[in-house]
Amino acid sequence: MTVPESDGAQIEVVRVFTDQAGRFGNPLGIVRHAAVAGVDHQALAARVGYSETVVVDDPADGRVRMRIYTPAVELPFAGHPSVGTAWWLSDQRQPVHIIDVPAGPVEVTSTDGITWARARAEWTPDFEFHEFEDAAEIATLDPGDFPEGKHYCWGWTNEPRGAIRSRMFAPAMGVAEDEATGAAAVRLTALLTRGLKITQGEGSQIFTEWDSDGWARVGGRVVADHPIVV
């Protein structure tokens, strides 16, 4: 039997997909499974309120199991939790090469300050993509214009260089607006079959690489933030 909430559980927090100066980024809540073994994880994520909170097992043999929760639903895969957790475990001196999520094994690496996660496009949620001819219009959008569903709005800022501007609204997942969305970046990379340099939300930065046959890599910078207690 589980209880609906946690009494005093400490949630570690990192910001994923920051810019080069460590600004912006999407907060991610991280908690060890042992610390919340008798807790309703979905209710915990709702209390934390970030777009995603993860429950992580203890790593073994270079891999770790992880569950991912938005405030409303559990996800089989998500990009910013995969990148953020890989960085955090490395920072904790428990680096892994594989994160096992319900969708499958996510390979993680780090190069030149960028943490990467490799995933398949079909693991991502079923986003509705809206391409804007004028990327400047994306800044004028209001989350209230998207009362349901999962909407990724994007436009080229420099198509030859693969640079785009984007915002994402996902009330279906309990997220009015997401600051930086790795799973949508994976799906768009697969749709366009090319690597991208994405500026999302207030200024978060996401990088992707097209691999092949439905595989893509998503990466970015991560910084530690202040833990919270719920």
Results as ranks from 00 to 15, higher is better:
209 E>I: 02
170 A>N: 07
4 P>G: 12
196 L>I: 08
225 D>H: 15
174 G>S: 09
143 P>N: 11
36 V>I: 00
162 G>F: 00
160 P>W: 02
171 P>G: 09
203 G>L: 13
49 G>Q: 15
212 S>Q: 14
171 P>N: 09
223 V>Q: 06
156 W>Y: 11
137 E>M: 08
92 Q>V: 01
86 A>C: 09
47 R>G: 02
229 V>T: 15
151 H>G: 01
212 S>E: 14
114 I>M: 13
129 F>T: 07
202 E>M: 11
51 S>F: 02
116 W>H: 10
195 G>S: 07
176 A>T: 07
188 L>R: 09
143 P>Y: 08
14 V>C: 11
208 T>H: 05
177 E>L: 04
178 D>I: 07
7 D>A: 03
159 E>A: 14
194 R>N: 07
55 V>R: 14
27 P>C: 12
169 F>Y: 15
156 W>M: 11
82 S>Q: 07
63 R>S: 03
47 R>I: 03
210 W>H: 13
41 H>Y: 03
25 G>A: 08
146 F>P: 05
90 S>W: 02
98 I>T: 04
148 E>P: 02
202 E>Y: 08
96 V>I: 07
224 A>P: 14
219 G>I: 01
198 I>V: 14
119 A>D: 05
158 N>Y: 04
112 D>H: 15
197 K>C: 05
218 V>E: 05
119 A>M: 13
48 V>T: 06
122 E>P: 04
204 S>G: 15
82 S>C: 11
30 I>G: 01
112 D>R: 15
66 M>N: 12
34 A>F: 09
112 D>V: 09
6 S>E: 05
53 T>Y: 06
65 R>A: 14
71 P>C: 14
191 L>D: 14
33 H>N: 05
131 E>G: 06
104 G>A: 11
204 S>V: 12
18 T>L: 03
137 E>L: 12
115 T>Y: 12
230 V>Q: 06
84 G>H: 00
73 V>G: 01
145 D>M: 06
157 T>F: 09
77 F>I: 02
154 W>M: 09
156 W>P: 08
4 P>N: 12
69 Y>A: 02
184 A>Q: 13
6 S>G: 04
178 D>C: 10
190 A>L: 14
34 A>R: 15
128 E>T: 12
120 R>S: 01
222 V>F: 03
10 Q>K: 15
185 A>V: 01
136 A>M: 09
104 G>H: 03
213 D>E: 13
157 T>G: 05
209 E>D: 13
52 E>Y: 08
6 S>W: 09
11 I>S: 14
66 M>K: 13
220 G>A: 04
64 V>L: 00
2 T>G: 01
167 R>W: 07
103 A>C: 07
166 S>T: 11
124 T>G: 08
187 R>Q: 12
229 V>F: 12
29 G>R: 06
180 A>S: 14
133 E>W: 00
81 P>D: 12
224 A>Y: 10
38 G>L: 00
221 R>C: 07
190 A>V: 13
179 E>H: 13
31 V>W: 11
83 V>N: 03
40 D>Q: 09
132 F>I: 00
28 L>V: 10
110 S>M: 08
